[in-house]
Write a protein that binds this DNA or RNA. Sequence first.
DNA 1: GGCCAACGGTCTCCAATATAGACCAGGTCT
DNA 2: AGACCTGGTCTATATTGGAGACCGTTGGCC
Lengths: 138, 138
Amino acid sequence: MTTQEQARAGAGAAQAQELDVFAQLCPSRAVFAELVDKWSMLILMGLDEFGPQRFSELQRGVDGVSRKMLTQSLRSLERNGLVRRTVHPETPPRVVYDLLPLGRELAALVSPVGRWTEERTGQMLAAREEFDRAHADG
Amino acid sequence: MTTQEQARAGAGAAQAQELDVFAQLCPSRAVFAELVDKWSMLILMGLDEFGPQRFSELQRGVDGVSRKMLTQSLRSLERNGLVRRTVHPETPPRVVYDLLPLGRELAALVSPVGRWTEERTGQMLAAREEFDRAHADG
DNA sequence: GGCCAACGGTCTCCAATATAGACCAGGTCT
DNA sequence: AGACCTGGTCTATATTGGAGACCGTTGGCC
């Protein structure tokens, strides 16, 4: 066992909660895998930045998402207690989604990732070009 | 066009860079989609928390990752300039991966998401139970 | 009345992707 | 000699994602 692995092994045990996203069978890993998803992240960021929105507003805002994936991601976020779905019984019924406290917490952590990506995209595209040049044949 | 959509439309134009993860065809969306991935995130967090590691150390540390996905995610991170791959020409050759400055920046934003997930997993599992109870038939 | 669109979805089909597991060459250990 | 470790690649199968049809209700338009 290497030094890093000793550190890893110790890390989990040291925490009172015993939850570890690095462990395949830990419930927190499953939750993590469900949250760390392109569409869920964008939805969360959208609701955080632009406030409560209807289904079709979200679909237009999160450009490129299909109705299927939007429904699926929203259900997942709702089930995990991050987002609230409210049906206003008008004709036609309005369905509005907004963030619950848990969702606002996560959005506050995730939005910086989005902004960072936008800031650093130029550097990453440059790195790609160099990588591809270096790995083209020789 | 709703108030939120006006806000959205204005948001991109207001930024000098014109990069927007919400826009399907923006390069930053493609980069975002590539980074926001279960395995890439865990690898980044692992390298940040436990330091430079070999391929097989990472495979043991990021529990459950297949060699194929580990290779693929590491190549992606390397190509985008987040991670460095160093081959030590010994027998057997040692291959060590470590974070570049770009990778350290992103890891600093992503690790909190992992820690938050561990902290809040309990609440999310509870929310699930309630959701499932409420949506079991009637 | 007839036609079309918007709403918030669901359903089905097909392509792309993830995972499991075999395989590989070179070298070490016993 | 035989088993094992290294850092992968390759293949077969399971899962997932996206495109687009469908749905019932409502509203506008001619």
